[in-house]
Design a protein around this nucleic acid. Structure first.
Lengths: 135, 135
DNA sequence: TCAACTGTCCTAGTGTTGCATAACAGTAAA
DNA sequence: TTTACTGTTATGCAACACTAGGACAGTTGA
């Protein structure tokens, strides 16, 4: 599990880290129940303050992606989504709308957009299965 | 063209405004070539400073959605996308990936996700056509 | 119990962002 | 050229965000 952060990237370091963990979870590189690196070692490895790592983890925790057991560490959640169905729908639609609006302004048509979406779904699905099969 | 901003929304006012314009353009409420409200009147109407409006417009300009003609005003671009094809593809894929990853963490399956995407594509398309037909 | 690990909280320095006021500059029509 | 629009740029300042260091507290196993 190698993460990379870039101070000059414009985006806050703790968000870069949170994104990478989110993506790793979605593509199966991180499995449910698996422990995440603990604060101090990871902080040392990435040359960050432990609180910066903690902030990234806190971000993921409110999103229901990881959970923390005090004294033990952080773990990828087994049962996800602490949100109710309407809230989940709203969250996802907001994200989808942003992509749809972006497609409009980039003059990407409906069919090409749908093709891209399917391609990315496949991409994450495939990666996830590859990990599951022990590759 | 009525915009609404909320100081307590957590999101910066200028971004709220930019979003609304982006959405209005994507759903056809704003047509290519159409002028946007000029800074001072809109600022007065929304009880904001002119520079806050200007910042929203500047945001949209770098995204290639509107253009400014000095001394004349702001206009919705006719020819959009000042970006090259690879850049456009990267921008859009980033947005799509965010939605796909979000769907994964919200435990929304492939078919349901695709259905939602199509629904939103239809929604914007329909609105756009309704405006075009003079409704 | 003690040591070594885990995360948490409090506090602070630094830089950035968001919003504002004011003076400036281009355009158009009378 | 004058007037009344248009957007632009410079500056200030309060609030917030980001990162960090030190002290604290729960957990585990020797």
């Amino acid at each position: 599990m190698i993460f990379q952060v870039d101070f000059k990237a414009g985006k806050p370091v703790y968000l870069q880290l949170a994104d990478q963990i989110r993506y790793a979870a979605a593509s199966g590189k991180l499995r449910p129940g698996e422990p995440l690196p603990s604060l101090r070692p990871l902080a040392e490895e990435l040359r960050l303050n432990r609180n910066t790592i903690a902030k990234a983890y806190a971000e993921l925790e409110v999103q229901g992606i990881i959970e923390t057991i005090p004294g033990k560490g952080f773990f990828l959640k087994q049962k996800k989504s602490p949100f109710t169905e309407p809230v989940r729908q709203r969250l996802l639609l907001t994200e989808i709308d942003e992509a749809v609006v972006m497609a409009h302004h980039l003059q990407v048509g409906r069919e090409k957009f749908l093709a891209l979406v399917k391609e990315r779904l496949d991409y994450f699905e495939k990666k996830s299965n590859a990990v599951k099969d022990g590759e």
